Simulated assay, not measured.
Amino acid sequence: MAKFMLIMRNTDESLKTMMATPFEEMLDKVGRFNEELISAGVLVAAEGLDDPANGAVIDYEGETPVVTDGPYGETRELFGGFYLIEVPSKEEAIEWARRMPALPGSKCELRRVPSIDEFPQDNEWVIKERGWRERTGQL
């Protein structure tokens, strides 16, 4: 099994459509998809994100990080939420992404989340993280 993150990206067009869609209708569509993921036993986490205007960007280009309050970037550069699923293959993750209730014009970026087992097991930081994951029930 591997973990994959499905990152939801909007466009100006899809964001306008979403804002015009009744909230209960959006909840119903997302709720049905969430229930499918839960029933299939593949959902690890899912979260929507707050308005970018309430966020910030921390830029590490210079010696001192520069903080810029939102809104920031173009809509196509932002993501609005994510699903973290655990499935046997990239192909199955893609199939779940195809079923996601996305609005026309939206995009979903699919990224595999490497397992801690893929890192050098004799590294002190990996050992500490493994201990933390074991203590918190993540392993």
Rank of each mutant, 00 (worst) to 15 (best):
D122V: 00
G73Y: 04
K3I: 03
V126P: 08
L139G: 01
R9S: 07
A102S: 14
P104S: 08
M18C: 08
Y72D: 03
G62C: 03
A46P: 02
P101H: 06
A45G: 04
T17R: 12
D28Y: 07
N10P: 13
P52T: 06
T68Q: 14
D51N: 15
P101W: 11
F82V: 04
A97T: 10
E134P: 03
V113F: 12
R130V: 00
P71N: 05
P22V: 03
K29T: 03
P65E: 02
L139M: 09
M5K: 14
W132Q: 10
V126S: 07
E61T: 05
S89E: 09
A20W: 02
L6G: 11
M8F: 13
N34T: 02
R112G: 03
W96K: 04
G137D: 00
E35W: 05
M26A: 06
R98H: 09
F4E: 13
D59Q: 14
R32P: 08
P101Y: 07
T64E: 15
E92A: 14
M26D: 03
F82T: 01
Q138A: 09
L110C: 01
I116D: 09
P65D: 02
S39V: 03
T75H: 08
P101Q: 09
R112D: 01
R130G: 00
I58N: 05
R111P: 12
R98Y: 04
G80T: 10
L139T: 08
G48D: 05
W96D: 02
E109D: 14
Y83H: 12
E25P: 01
I94L: 15
Q121H: 14
E25H: 00
E13D: 15
G105K: 12
R76A: 04
S106M: 15
E118G: 05
P104W: 09
L6A: 12
E61K: 14
A102N: 12
F119A: 02
E118R: 02
Y83V: 11
Y60R: 08
I116C: 06
E24P: 05
L15C: 05
I58W: 04
G48T: 01
W125Q: 03
G48A: 03
K3L: 13
I38D: 04
M19Y: 06
W132L: 15
D122E: 06
E91N: 10
A102M: 10
P22Q: 07
E74L: 13
K16C: 06
F82C: 03
E86I: 00
E91I: 07
E129D: 10
M100P: 01
E24L: 13
W132E: 07
L103K: 05
T136S: 11
S39E: 15
F119P: 00
Y72N: 05
G70M: 13
D59C: 14
